[in-house]
Design a binder for these strands. Structure first.
Lengths: 102, 102
DNA sequence: ACTACATATGAATATATATTCAGGTGTTTT
DNA sequence: AAAACACCTGAATATATATTCATATGTAGT
């Protein structure tokens, strides 16, 4: 399904791959991502669902936004976050499926 | 491509998903996984390729083995590691592709 | 302008993690 | 049985990270 021929992976690329996976390497972020894949949401709602402070959610979202894993749009006082990258959704769901299937 | 209906992700499942992605969240482990996906290898060879001590490689491999992301078989003095789970290979390569395509 | 609300930011802290070093275990050869 | 090789393990350390608290910024309504 993917490139068969492989050479040594350079440190720079490896670091970026690690960074990508690290985005999903925390329980709170996983729950945030899962919620956002289901539907667009704002900081307060996410904080309630995940069970951490709004500040903590905001910190996580900043990281996810900087990596372009989520996008945001302001609507009045609220800021709505969403996941619009299908590739990322697939990647995340594949991890989830792997866990669910044992 | 994956389950469309989604409810709140429970903390336990989220923790396991995070744990899975955390396995690929370190530069050295990414390089180890990449090498092992290309071909079966042993600790010494991996240490040389990745540029860390054999001890460090061994520590990483223990974690990966415990998560059943790699399997090992002894052959004389050497222990050969490999990645035999196609699902995991696909997951890893999808992360790599995402990075390579920017 | 003031208040209330939603989110963001920075500092502080506590916990996790990657690595190395020193020494230990298992295997082969002599 | 001793030496050499490959790997593993535990402790120590240094760095990264998640979270909270306090405070700041932005927005809407009065």
């Amino acid at each position: 399904m993917v490139s068969p021929i492989q050479t040594n992976l350079d440190e720079h690329t490896a670091a970026h791959v690690a960074e990508l996976f690290r985005a999903f390497s925390d329980t709170s972020r996983v729950r945030i991502m899962h919620a956002l894949i289901a539907r667009e949401s704002n900081v307060g709602a996410l904080a309630e669902q995940v069970g951490i402070s709004e500040s903590a959610v905001s910190h996580h979202l900043r990281g996810l936004r900087q990596m372009r894993l989520v996008s945001s749009r302001r609507e009045g006082k609220e800021v709505h976050y969403r996941v619009d990258d299908e590739h990322i959704i697939t990647l995340f769901n594949q991890g989830l499926n792997h866990v669910r299937q044992g």
